[in-house]
Simulated assay, not measured.
Amino acid sequence: MAVRKGSTLRAQWLGKQLRELRESAKLTLKDAGDYIQRDPSSLSRMEQGITPMRVPDVLTLLNLYGVSDARLRDGLERLSRDIWQKNWWDGYSDVFTGRIIDHAWLESRAQRLRSYDAMVVPGLLQTRRYAEAVIGAADPHKPKERIARWAEFRLHRQRVLSGDCPLRLSVILDEAVFYRAVGGPEVLRDQLGHLVDLAQCSTISIRVLPFRAGVGASPEGPFTIFDMPDPYPDVAYIETRAGALYVEGDEAAGFAHAYASLDETALAPDESVAFIRNAAEQTI
């Protein structure tokens, strides 16, 4: 689903789950609205994710709908608190749209992230200079101060890769990524060295998809899969010029199958590290 303007993925997920629970309880919008002292149109906007739902209303509705599963209740309560809780990315809300804030939130909640990239190194693995070069290339007219702000945000996102419970990250990179001189040879060489260092981490897997593998399982381009804990659905993310697209359920499963096919044809981890080292040495 495309995230609505003014809404967040979190609010849409919560609203969708509560709508399904209400319908399962065979209650109308008026029934539920009267119970929490909201008119039906207000509750409808909440279920659509247009208006964020407050935690007391969520807990009251869960009681009305007869939800006794502790895991589901805890998950939905946490999701409702996430909608309102301030976090580090709120310091960038004056610069970024909701789609990238949603992306950072997904990274903070995911159990594992899998991605396939064919053009550039993904943001979670970028050095500052490489990030600034990618951001600047996307919008050559962006002021240097704004580029620096974007790069700072991207580096802050990388904190999910460290700490007590780091995100498990599996990345497949097309061979072309290692020869595309983003920012010039020196920037690329430093970036490739950074990848070699990151590949030593037990929670990070970096694999190379060689040219000989052919067109691969994703000729449409890059994608990211977020493996989420309950009650969140697993999500596939695709970046487009028209905005971010998030898909769930069977559609997300299709991306998981594509990733599995790419994984079968990618170089082994040790071979990939050797390939990246060699590419760095050839960068002049």
Rank of each mutant, 00 (worst) to 15 (best):
E152M: 02
P143R: 11
A148N: 04
Y232W: 15
R154A: 02
E152V: 01
A274T: 07
Y130C: 06
K142D: 06
A181M: 11
T127H: 05
S115D: 14
I135L: 02
D190E: 15
P229R: 03
G216Q: 08
S80C: 04
L161K: 04
P233C: 00
V182C: 04
A2I: 13
Y65D: 01
A252T: 03
R180Q: 14
R159V: 01
A151V: 05
E251K: 14
K144S: 12
A133G: 02
A181P: 03
R109A: 12
A110E: 03
F226W: 04
W105Q: 01
R180E: 13
L245F: 06
L79I: 15
L43Q: 07
T224L: 12
W89L: 00
Q12P: 04
L245M: 12
C165Q: 13
I238Q: 13
T28P: 05
D197S: 13
N63V: 13
P229L: 00
D190C: 10
S272H: 05
R212S: 15
V182T: 10
C201M: 12
F153C: 03
E264N: 13
F255I: 04
S202V: 08
P166V: 01
E132L: 03
L9R: 09
S42A: 11
A260E: 15
S162Q: 13
E107H: 04
L169V: 09
A274K: 11
L43D: 05
I284W: 08
G183S: 01
L21E: 09
D57M: 07
R54H: 14
E175S: 10
S202T: 10
G183Q: 01
T265Q: 14
P229E: 00
H194T: 03
T51L: 08
D263Y: 05
G184W: 07
A104P: 00
Y92G: 00
D39A: 07
P52N: 10
L209R: 15
Y179P: 01
A279I: 09
G123M: 08
L43G: 04
E47V: 08
P122M: 06
I284K: 13
Y35S: 14
D227W: 05
V235I: 15
A280S: 11
D174T: 05
G184P: 09
L169W: 12
E186N: 09
P56F: 09
E107C: 08
E107V: 05
V134T: 04
D57F: 08
R241S: 10
P219E: 09
K142M: 15
E264L: 13
G33C: 03
T8K: 04
L262E: 15
V182K: 01
Q17N: 14
T8D: 08
